[in-house]
Amino acid sequence: MSAQPRRPSRHGRASNRRIITFATVIVVGAMALEGIATGQSSASPGAGQAISAGGSSRGSAQVSEGRQLFVSDCSSCHGFNAQGKPGRAPSLIGVGAQAPDFYLDTGRMPLAYPREYPGESKPAYPRAEISALVGYIASLGGPAIPSVDPASGDLSQGAQVFALNCAGCHQISARGGIVTGGVAPALQNSTATEIAEAVRIGPYFMPRFSTGEITPQALNSLARYIIATRNPDDAGGWGIGHIGPIPEGMIAWLALISLLMIARAIGERTT
């Protein structure tokens, strides 16, 4: 199996995967024989953690499909057994279901090469395959996908929690921002689950927040507030991006230019 990083392409994805899956099956089959000999089995789930989709009756099939996908697509950086590779990618043992679900659902993983910036993009896998991968990584132990209910959250509490903990990077209207060395994305496209996962994981540069710092109830409120930023109360008219004085200044100059054009019409001699 080649150790070169593969670029996930939008075109010909299915055919690429078929070829490699076929090759992988051969290889995995060989390794599985070896794995059985060394006592490592990918069939049994880890320490009793819930898997997001499916349910325990599909558990082992999902996990093994996830294992196959992992070996073919992820192991080149994360290690054959998800133990990580120094200088390349961290270990995934113990990260549970929430981390892979977040990274795969937001398209941040897989990366084309180890130091690529893990930015938000279209997910590289369909939902079923994501669930499979999540199931496999979850089987190695770690926290489940957090449950979050925005409807039971308090908008005002969410606004305060967001202002204190999140606005510094993500901007008070969740339109995204800059950190030295990175970007904090806008959150209008984030689902409640993704918000909850990000808060608990602290992906890439983002800090993480324990249940002691942001309680599950506060997390509900936070998710409710962030989702509400999709439709801010723009009583004043066109929101021009909700990022403040910069677009406002541009509009002011456009207004001045239009007034200058009116002045030009007035000031020129018409006779």
Binding site: P86, A89, P90, P114, A167, C169
Partner: peptide
């Protein structure tokens, strides 16, 4: 000072 850049692991970035 309301931003905290908290890299996930030393393997992901030199910052």
């Amino acid at each position: 000072v309301s931003l905290y850049r908290s890299p996930l692991s030393p393997t992901t970035t030199s910052d």
